[in-house]
Design a protein around this nucleic acid. Sequence first.
RNA 1: GCCGAUGUAGCUCAGCUGGCAGAGCAACGCUUUCGUAAAGCGUGGGUCAUCGGUUCGAAUCCGAUCAUCGGCUCCA
Length: 592
Amino acid sequence: MTDLHAMRHTAAHVLATAVERLYPGAKFGVGPVVENGFYYDILFPEPISDEALSVIEKEMKKIISEKHEMVREEISLDSAVEFFKNRGQDFKVELLKDLKEKGTTKIQTDEAQDIDADRPDIAILYHTGTFTDLCRGPHIENVKDVGAFKLWKIAGAYWRGNEKNPQMQRVYGLAFETQKELDEYLNMLEEAKKRDHRKLGTELELFTIIDEVGPGLPLFYPKGAILRRLVENFIIEQQEKRGYVPIWIPHITKGRLYEISGHLQKYDAMYPPMDLPDEAQYYLKPMNCPHFMMLYKSTTHSYRDMPLRWTCTTTNYRYEKSGELTGLTRVRSLTQDDCHVFARPDQIEQEINLMLDMVDETYRAFGFKDFWVRVSTSDPNNREKYIGDPKIWEESEAALSRLVEGRGWKKEIGVGEAAFYGPKLDFMVKDVIGRPWQLSTIQLDMNLPERFELEYADSDGKVKRPVVIHRAILGSTERFLGILIEHYGGAFPMWLAPVQIRLATVSEDFVSFAQKLKDELTDAGLRVELDSSDLKVGKKIRNSAMMKIPWTIVIGEKETQAEPFVVNVFGQEENLTIDQAKLIQAAQDLSK
RNA sequence: GCCGAUGUAGCUCAGCUGGCAGAGCAACGCUUUCGUAAAGCGUGGGUCAUCGGUUCGAAUCCGAUCAUCGGCUCCA
């Protein structure tokens, strides 16, 4: 790992060296190692475009052939500042000032150079030929040992990840020990693209996004809508057996509601209000919490009724910035399997555990094994940032961590990543090109009960404030489906396949028989299609396979003769020959 | 919203330095009625994303807008 890491890190310096030669005046930000390669953030005198990559690549190869040593140098902070100032490297100067004042250059996930406690005045530099960088290393000794690399894309990136800072250009490079590994990686990316849910969405007739309807507003074809319903029904079943009860809320609402909740002032993805003759301004709801709160508040509650487990699967509308939309994973109309539990503080752990059961059972059912849980906690050094009883915070954070550990799931702690109103658990899954997405979320809320002045009568006769736990298992149905499509590469297991069985007739003579069989299978609760066109059987099977339909059954002379008739199921690992009753039974078993 | 790229038929894509808009698949019609991953022939289908400009002439060059893709920021 260290060697590969050092090699990639050195490749980033070679990139910078090439850029310095080709674009005098370029200012350098940071150039860390990332998964599969490296990048360097650079402010070019003029923004470069893709064609520049091959030119830079050529220069990099030249630099590598020049066999420069990577020379390490330690100098005083002040002379380092002086050095970079003279070269017009403002970003490096800023990093050095941070190093001096804060003891680290780290902001967000940038690679950091930290002050060495024993030698607080030292900055570490690396020289590559005429190029010098502020960098703690490690590097390989000589640039000649940089392996196979490829510059592959340019992206915008704000200096130090802050929108208000100037935007630099991030040049991404892939780097591996050998050309073979690089080729394999590129090949893998090509393969991954075939599983992309946006591609499969069109190919398998699941969903589409139409310009005239609007960006981020997907429409679902029948097959996609069935898939949606299967997934949502699964969740509904899971909820029912755990005592969650449905409620229902409207999709538009007076702005007053969001004044109370505080969203109007704080939430920036709200669609503008509708222009109505009414005095009140009406908004599309971007979230459901306030409605749940209002419904709770509209009647009185006793400690005996707690917890209340209320759910509603409903669509929210969020005006996400245009550049942030992608397929189904980031949309403007998102359906949440939303649930709010109103609980006494002593019930928090039990309720969260119940939710974790549900996450567990759901992820197993859909075959998600490769996920991790982010425990977002408060920052103990910044207590005043958070509202609510510190004791409840402490207890619930401990409970969240403990409960996740008990499950044996991969866990990451996000210190200071809690919302101001409570700690949370986020369940993360990667898409087919490796981007992480949040699906399930479990959040404690100590804010909204306060703002809406929610109450219940406790056993001691006193009026108390309940705790609210938000929870969504799918997160958003759309995003979940996007991930699910990629997870299975569109080849869904029997129980999720929009079409489970396609009947393919050999010729016209068998259509009426096939129609009868189709009706029987449909009556048995299976999702069946009949291909009675005059295409050849081979073509019908091919078409069925392309649509990734689990079972294809050819209906011809043989099938109509046998008693009970025997069919051959194409699409199994080994084709399956079974009679009618067993066929129905087998299909039903697989559908569970 | 920001940086870069892209936008040609339902889908996948050709179309060179400006000179009559193309292919495969799909659709439709005819022939064929056929046994396990593509039968044959034919027909229709496009304001070349939109709007504007340059030009005798624009899919092609320029500008703006919209959308998509990869990132950044933000987020379920």
